[in-house]
């Protein structure tokens, strides 16, 4: 996305957020190429070691390199954070658009299904999946993704409902456009931006949820690092080495904040008109 028009918003915060996300993203993608110690190799003599030339951020309670774990953790946290909302935005977005456009029984069914999904206790669902399908990153993405569908459905349906009544959609109908053409050419471009903004907020929420699930032991299976599991493990030595929990917490906080800032800026840009005049 381009920078906000005409200095409508101070761009410095947005720029910082984008730089941070780029940094984290690159680190996660190129984690294997970076000259880092293995994130799972234990150095039982260097438990909770303070930072030195070899271990820039020190070691954790099992003597594993913190920096390496943070960067490899970014890989898992970001892939869960990005992929789970993709499930939500595609399934939920499509369902919401169809429900809002066609109305009738389809809408009743969708809204009903979404309500059922919302009412289902998320932890029980996560427990059931990990118990029967096993604990893996893929299952984690699936669980959080499915739980995110209702929110995306609702946003897409609400936007579509108001768009369907707009004159330009009626105009397309009057021209004899097919339903699929109206949905793809007239409605989708107008639903896309609000959904993208919501998607970025979804990413932020998912990173936190992944953290919480890993913290509870329902997330990524050990010894693979994720920010949430690092906080969980760091908790045991809060009194001895509080930075073990705080470092991943700070990184997670910054990333979530950055996604929120980008999401908000995008939402401010949703309106194609440059201010009311």
């Amino acid at each position: 996305m381009a920078a906000p028009r005409g200095g409508r918003r101070p761009g410095a915060v947005l720029a910082c957020a984008l730089v941070w996300l780029a940094l984290i993203g690159c680190a996660a993608i190129f984690a294997n190429l970076l000259p880092l110690p293995s994130p799972t190799e234990m150095d039982l003599l260097g438990k909770r070691a303070l930072p030195d030339a070899q271990h820039w951020l020190g070691n954790d309670q099992l003597g594993r390199d913190m920096l390496s774990r943070l960067i490899h953790g970014a890989r898992i946290s970001l892939s869960v954070g990005l992929l789970a909302p993709v499930i939500g935005v595609t399934v939920g977005g499509a369902l919401g658009m169809l429900a809002g456009y066609f109305r009738g029984p389809l809408e009743t069914l969708t809204v009903g299904g979404v309500d059922v999904l919302l009412a289902f206790p998320p932890l029980v669902f996560a427990l059931a999946v990990t118990t029967y399908l096993g604990q893996s990153v893929l299952n984690l993405i699936l669980v959080i993704g499915i739980l995110g569908i209702p929110a995306f459905t609702r946003v897409a349906r609400a936007v579509t409902l108001s768009l369907t009544e707009r004159e330009f959609v009626v105009a397309a109908r009057a021209l004899g456009a097919t339903h699929s053409r109206i949905l793809l050419r007239e409605i989708l471009p107008n639903v896309a931006l609000p959904l993208t903004a919501f998607f970025l907020l979804g990413v932020a929420v998912t990173i936190v949820v992944e953290g919480a699930l890993s913290f509870l032991g329902l997330g990524v299976p050990p010894p693979a690092p994720s920010w949430g599991s690092m906080i969980g493990e760091g908790r045991e030595s809060l009194d001895l080495a509080p930075w073990l929990a705080f470092l991943p917490a700070v990184v997670m906080f910054m990333t979530v904040l950055a996604f929120n800032v980008v999401g908000d800026s995008l939402r401010a840009l949703t309106d194609p008109r440059p201010g009311a005049l």
Binding site: G6, R8, P274, G275, L277
Partner: peptide, 8 residues
Amino acid sequence: PTPRGLLR
């Protein structure tokens, strides 16, 4: 003041 300049 507007994004496009001062509006009299």
